[in-house]
């Protein structure tokens, strides 16, 4: 949030109120206020794709407002006619007639001269997992198998702590370089990756997923992502080549333990 910009926008809108502008001016002012808000009021800036959608919705809403009452409609029509015909508005009219094409030209120019960049693309963050994966010749059923050590949490807290500790060791030997000390996806190597490593502190990552899902992602890594989550360039290795099954389950325990999250519970089908 960029407080200064937000205050400035509010100040301008309040000031405008005292000028008692016509409905058309109001609508335009609102439009620009939202536009400025989305582009400059929020930090980091909102991606263009989202601003465009926001502005489309705002445009529809403003149109709806102007046309929803007969009186406003008439007022809007009259002021538009006045703007184009009255001598009084000659200079603003000329400015507008010049500015609008210029703006369009500028937009075209700037979009054509930007640096080459990979096309904007939506990546599927949580691609659907397969029903089963094979792990070193064994089949793991992602839908029905549970973390074989999770039950220890209730049954045998000492053994559980051992598993978590083992997970801690695995994490700091393997994962910490990318996923970071406090699991925020900001390890030493993180800045070199696109997409950046997952942030486990984010409530929309591991807290939304079942443990089997994590097992799948850890075991199969970037190379195991399904086609539909392309384009991907995930640097995550396929850890099945380096870790044992127990180590993977342990590190999953540790992830949840460290971030103080709970895995998504299995839906019980009644």
């Amino acid at each position: 949030m960029n407080v200064l910009v937000i205050l400035a926008i509010i100040a301008v809108m309040v000031a405008l109120r005292f000028l008692k502008p016509t409905i058309v001016v109001w609508a335009i002012a609102w439009w620009f206020a939202v536009f400025a808000m989305a582009n400059y009021g929020i930090d980091p800036p909102v991606p263009t794709s989202v601003t465009n959608m926001f502005m489309a919705i705002v445009t529809i809403a403003l149109l709806a407002y102007v046309t929803a009452a007969e009186g406003r409609m008439r007022e809007a029509g009259e002021s538009l006619v006045a703007f184009f015909t009255s001598k009084k508005y000659f200079i603003p009219l000329v400015i507008m007639l010049v500015a609008v094409p210029l703006l369009v030209a500028f937009n075209v120019y700037s979009s054509m001269t930007t640096q080459p960049a990979p096309p904007a693309a939506g990546r599927t963050i949580h691609p659907p997992p397969p029903a089963t994966v094979s792990f070193k010749g064994r089949t793991v059923d992602l839908n029905n198998d549970v973390n074989p050590y999770r039950h220890l949490e209730d049954d045998d807290s000492e053994a559980f702590a051992q598993h978590v500790d083992n997970g801690r060791r695995v994490y700091y030997e393997n994962c910490v370089y990318c996923h970071g000390d406090n699991m925020a996806g900001d390890g030493h190597f993180a800045h070199g990756f696109n997409p950046i490593p997952a942030n486990f502190q984010d409530p929309t990552t591991i807290a939304m997923l079942q443990e089997g899902y994590l097992f799948w992602r850890i075991a199969k890594g970037g190379p195991g992502l399904p086609v539909e989550s392309t384009p991907w360039a995930s640097a995550m290795p396929a850890w099945e080549l380096f870790l044992s099954e127990e180590e993977i389950w342990d590190v999953i325990l540790f992830l949840y333990d460290f971030t103080d999250q709970r895995p998504r519970a299995r839906e019980v089908h009644e």
Binding site: I42, I57, G122
Partner: peptide, 28 residues
């Protein structure tokens, strides 16, 4: 309406994604 139409993972250019620190916008 705006809230409802806000996507979970946003379409962003690489540059925008870098500024956001991922495909998740910290605010949106």
């Amino acid at each position: 309406f705006l809230v409802w139409a806000t996507p979970h993972s946003l379409v962003a250019s690489v540059e925008e994604a870098r500024k956001m620190g991922g495909a998740h916008h910290p605010v949106l």
